[in-house]
């Protein structure tokens, strides 16, 4: 069998999607990126080989910040282009505004006619990213998913610092003041959403569908707050974390023919 393989090596997780020649997804894999993208890429190849997917017959496109560390990839494409293609397939439309909250950056991507029309991305700062949520969750001795669930029952507190390091000390002082954990969790999610909303104001898109991709896609409360504050319904789904890898696999499929 010949396969189209998409590998998205993000800062936190590596996502792999294998498609058959008809474009059907036959395998999804998720693993932590760890400290070495090269080792991760090697582990993915070994795992696929065990499952009977050989690189020699297949075509492979790598994306994500670790895309250059996949020596066996036929091509590298940026995660922005891949997210665009992948999300179109997942949500069944070619007019989209994609919100991708990744480990180290948050991007908004406007897609028209299936093509990336414009995008905005956070600069060096990690405010509003998955990393921000992870650090705040650690400070509260919670897992990110637990933090989001707790946040649903909180309110009336806010974090004003945009800087992750300052925000962390703000959270610590809230803890010290005896603020309820759900209120602090609420403030953390609220801060991420506000940052995303402010980025969204910098991009023009009239697309009917607004979707969330990336590692936080299954956090219902986040989706709900994002929808409220954006004033547009934000949809997502379990495949949304694979959007980049699906887009890469679609690009690989083109190389098959």
């Amino acid at each position: 069998m010949r396969y189209a393989i998409g590998i998205d090596i993000g800062s936190t997780c590596a996502k792999t999607v294998v498609m058959d020649e008809t474009g059907g997804i036959v395998r999804r894999m998720l693993q932590p990126t760890g400290w070495s993208s090269v080792d991760t890429a090697e582990a993915i190849r070994a795992e696929l080989f065990r499952e009977g997917v050989s690189m020699e017959d297949s075509r492979c496109v790598a994306t994500g910040y670790g895309r250059v560390s996949v020596p066996y990839a036929d091509r590298c494409v940026t995660e922005i282009t891949c997210h665009g293609r992948g999300a179109c397939r997942i949500f069944g439309t070619d007019e989209l505004l994609i919100i991708d909250i990744g480990g180290q950056d948050t991007k908004l991507i406007a897609v028209e006619d299936g093509m990336v029309k414009d995008f905005v991305m956070n600069d060096k700062c990690s405010a509003g990213t998955g990393r921000f949520l992870e650090i705040m969750a650690n400070t509260l001795s919670l897992r990110p998913a637990e933090l989001c669930e707790l946040a649903a029952g909180g309110g009336s507190t806010s974090i004003s610092s945009m800087c992750t390091v300052f925000a962390e000390s703000e959270v610590i002082s809230l803890i010290g003041r005896g603020e309820k954990r759900e209120n602090i969790a609420f403030a953390v999610v609220d801060s991420i959403v506000k940052k995303v909303v402010s980025q969204a104001s910098r991009i023009q898109s009239d697309a009917k569908t607004v979707c969330l991709t990336g590692g936080l896609c299954e956090f219902d409360y986040l989706l709900q707050t994002l929808s409220q504050q954006l004033g547009r319904r934000v949809v997502s789904g379990p495949d949304a974390r694979y959007a980049g890898a699906i887009g890469a696999a679609l690009a690989a499929r083109k190389l098959l023919s």
Partner: peptide
């Protein structure tokens, strides 16, 4: 938006590549 350090070279390259891909 950038400065004279190399610390954002990775992010800049993602942006520029994506821009040129489009």
């Amino acid at each position: 938006e950038t400065d004279y350090s190399q610390s954002d070279a990775g992010q800049l390259s993602t942006r520029l590549e994506a821009f040129l891909e489009r």
